[in-house]
């Protein structure tokens, strides 16, 4: 466990909590893509099946349970408690365009052709693209609330810190996981455009709006 990994995990947790706090305090999920949140719940559910088979560490177990719980609470808020505020007209990304290629790729490129491993691989590939419905929604409406941009920033920062973690682990442990690394690079690239807007607009006190 290195500092990049810990900061990455905390950044991920902070992103999830920012989103929940936004919905809780404003009693609204406007501007949030329910589809992206469903994909993230699917990512956690398929990746953390190992909770039933192995014990890695208390840290690992607690974080997985928190991520899973928060993810399902988020979905309950969007599709249950706050459904009247859900902006479904702008959440129009077609999920099959992501799910079909991701399922196909996890059958083609994996470490082992066993169910748990295929589900893990599926979760890694899906996580790389799960934010696309949210980014698509922002490009549909042309703007995002500042709090939503903080959520996206920490979610992107988490993956960028994981890249540093992998570089660190390669140099110190000779450990590398090419499926996670390649997917992580792809995932981080999706955030680059957003990072640019976040730094040049949101951090200068302006609202994120697209030209």
């Amino acid at each position: 466990m290195n500092v990049f990994r810990i900061l990455g995990d905390l950044s991920h947790l902070l992103a999830i909590l920012i989103l929940l706090a936004k919905m809780w305090r404003s009693k609204s999920c406007a501007g949030i893509s329910g589809k992206s949140q469903v994909l993230f719940a699917l990512v956690f559910s398929t990746r953390y099946l190992d909770l039933f088979f192995v014990f890695i560490s208390l840290y690992n177990l607690v974080m997985k349970v928190i991520y899973l719980l928060c993810s399902y609470i988020t979905i309950y808020m969007i599709y249950g408690k706050l459904r009247k505020t859900y902006d479904r007209e702008n959440d129009t990304f077609r999920l099959e365009f992501l799910l079909i290629p991701v399922i196909g790729l996890s059958f083609l490129e994996n470490y082992d052709f066993i169910p748990t491993e295929l589900l893990w691989t599926f979760s890694i590939y899906l996580e790389a693209v799960a934010i696309l419905p949210q980014l698509f929604m922002i490009s549909n409406t042309g703007e995002a609330e500042t709090i939503t941009t903080h959520y996206l920033f920490f979610l992107g920062l988490y993956r960028a810190l994981y890249l540093a973690n992998w570089i660190w682990r390669y140099h110190t442990e000779k450990f590398y996981d090419q499926i996670a690394i390649i997917s992580g690079v792809v995932q981080t690239i999706f955030y680059c455009d957003f990072f640019y807007l976040y730094i040049t607009k949101v951090l200068k006190g302006k609202k994120l709006s697209l030209p």
């Binding site: 088979f53 192995v54 974080m63 082992d112 748990t116 973690n165």
Partner: peptide, 10 residues
């Protein structure tokens, strides 16, 4: 053989 227990990252 490799299995899911090898994945220690979140």
């Amino acid at each position: 053989e490799p299995d899911i227990s090898d994945h220690d990252e979140l």
